[in-house]
Design a protein around this nucleic acid. Structure first.
Length: 225
DNA sequence: GCGACAG
DNA sequence: ATCTTGTCGC
């Protein structure tokens, strides 16, 4: 995949936050998707043994959820883990992985937040804006916002609020299972994003895109150790 | 000062 | 995220 904009990664904490404020203005919150034939899932694992990040991309056929392509990339850590600046640590290896995919997806599901971020610019927004592609953030825990527990049935959800602003949905993907935190990344509406996460999670708590990407990086982690 | 804090 | 064993439940 080709970048529309050049982007510096050698920033300090202050510069990174300022860049987030600037890029957040480019986030498109409405549906602007092509028909989705392929969906991508991304995940990153960390090896503290050699201080390396392993990024994995899984491409799934949207209707069957069959895995049609996988890519794995290993890279040295170049940015510390700071809540709120997550993308500056994980995006370099992720984008390196996307350079190697053989099938272009029309939608990307990220492991982490999108708009549900202190500066409204989580990893999913960052990736979406840089590639100008539809993205969804689907996190296992929340970063910011408050919510009431959604009903126990699959498909139930409640808004994730920051003051009076809806920044995402807390969505139950399986009966009686801990909900996930869904927020838009770029070029998609929150409603459509939740529909996709439900469609991608027919059997387990997390969407198949994330589960497949997670398998890829876990295997890579075993080879490194 | 205290609690919260994506992976 | 990763470090880690067993254990409860479908």
């Amino acid at each position: 995949m080709e970048l529309k904009t050049t982007h510096r990664w050698d920033l300090d904490e202050q510069e990174a936050m300022e860049l987030q404020h600037q890029l957040a203005l480019q986030v498109m919150k409405e549906d602007a998707l092509e028909p989705v034939r392929y969906v991508a899932g991304v995940d990153v694992a960390y090896s503290e043994q050699n201080d390396k990040l392993i990024a994995g991309v899984a491409i799934l056929e949207a209707d069957s959820l069959n895995l049609v392509d996988t890519v794995m990339v290993e890279e040295s850590v170049s940015f510390p883990y700071i809540p709120g600046l997550f993308s500056f640590r994980e995006l370099p290896p992720i984008m390196k992985a996307f350079e190697q995919i053989s099938i272009l997806p029309q939608l990307i599901v990220c492991d982490g937040q999108g708009l549900a971020h202190p500066r409204r610019f989580g990893l999913a927004c960052h990736l979406g804006v840089l590639y100008d592609m539809p993205t969804i953030g689907c996190g296992k825990t929340k970063l910011s916002g408050s919510y009431v527990e959604p009903d126990i049935q699959r498909g139930s959800y409640s808004p994730l609020m920051d003051q009076h602003e809806v920044i995402g949905n807390v969505l139950r993907t399986q009966d009686g299972v801990k909900p996930v935190f869904v927020s838009i990344g770029h070029r998609i509406s929150l409603t459509t994003a939740c529909e996709w996460i439900l469609k991608l999670s027919p059997t387990f708590r997390l969407p198949e895109t994330t589960r497949q990407a997670d398998q890829i990086v876990r295997k890579g982690l075993k080879l490194t150790q």
